Computed example of a mutant assay.
Amino acid sequence: MTTSPSSPSRSRTGRGRPPPRVLDGVRLAVTTLTVLPVRAGRVDRSAAAVAMAVAPAVGALLGLILAGVHEGLRALGSPALVAAGVTVAAGALLSRGLHLDGLADTIDALGSYRSGPAALEIMKKPDIGPFGVAAIAATLLIQTGALTAAGPWAVVTAWATGRLAVTVACRRGVPAARPEGLGALVASSVPLPAVLVSAACVAGLALAAVPGRPWQGPAAVAVAMSAVVLLLHHTVRRFGGITGDVLGAAVECAVTATLVVVTLALA
């Protein structure tokens, strides 16, 4: 029997199984965005593109876990503020606090009014300045307050939207600020069609975020992505591109904006 050039590939992956780069990308997304103990696969640009494209799915998984924590505490009689605070803390733990650290470093650099290498040097410092501390405190306070009025699907939507910010930030055309690091690996790796598909999936999920007002969830996603695009425009102008810290800042910005909008008591 004559063997076609594609036959070896089929024999390695098996009929119906995803190609290795997809599995490597999913593993990379989980190991980068969560603390879940998943064995890492190959780490390269092709795997990074897949990882950043599927980031919203990982965010939705985190959201489901956190919604379970929140609703479980409420069912056990926990006060709304306590349940919300524990849920926000659990969210930080499940992501190793990396996104909050990125938020602090990014805000410190922006608050310095420096640009280029000088701003990037501030972001590399291990300490956190007053701007960064204020940004973390405000973010945690707003998220906790919003969660006191958020339902389970609003939580899932917010965390999925937070990771959609990563997909948007890594779309083609957005450069890396440094030639090394996470930003260099993932910057400009996600093609626009993949970004649009991810955004549509999150918007569809968001239809269930606010019972009785199906439009409010997608509106929250749109507001959050608008805020992320503005943040990216500003950081690219100031830093020359994105870094891992900018990705973390985009995540926290999107989660917070989504929670604020889905908990508005709109008529």
Rank of each mutant, 00 (worst) to 15 (best):
S78M: 01
L73D: 07
A90W: 14
V88T: 13
D127W: 15
A109T: 06
L100M: 15
G129P: 02
D44V: 15
L76T: 08
L100N: 09
V86I: 15
P130T: 04
S46G: 10
G63P: 08
L81S: 13
T144N: 03
V69I: 13
R45Y: 11
G72S: 10
A119K: 10
D105L: 07
D101F: 01
K124L: 13
G116N: 08
S95K: 12
H99I: 06
V58A: 04
V88E: 08
G77I: 01
A135D: 02
S46H: 11
L81W: 14
V69S: 00
G68M: 00
G116P: 07
F131T: 01
V69Y: 04
S95D: 14
T139E: 13
L93E: 03
L110C: 07
L93Y: 07
R74C: 02
A118E: 15
L94P: 03
D127L: 15
A104K: 07
A137V: 13
M52E: 00
G85Y: 06
L76N: 09
I128P: 05
G111E: 02
G116H: 07
P117G: 06
L110P: 05
A119Y: 11
L64K: 11
G97N: 03
I107R: 14
G129K: 03
K124D: 13
A75F: 11
R45F: 12
R45M: 11
P79C: 08
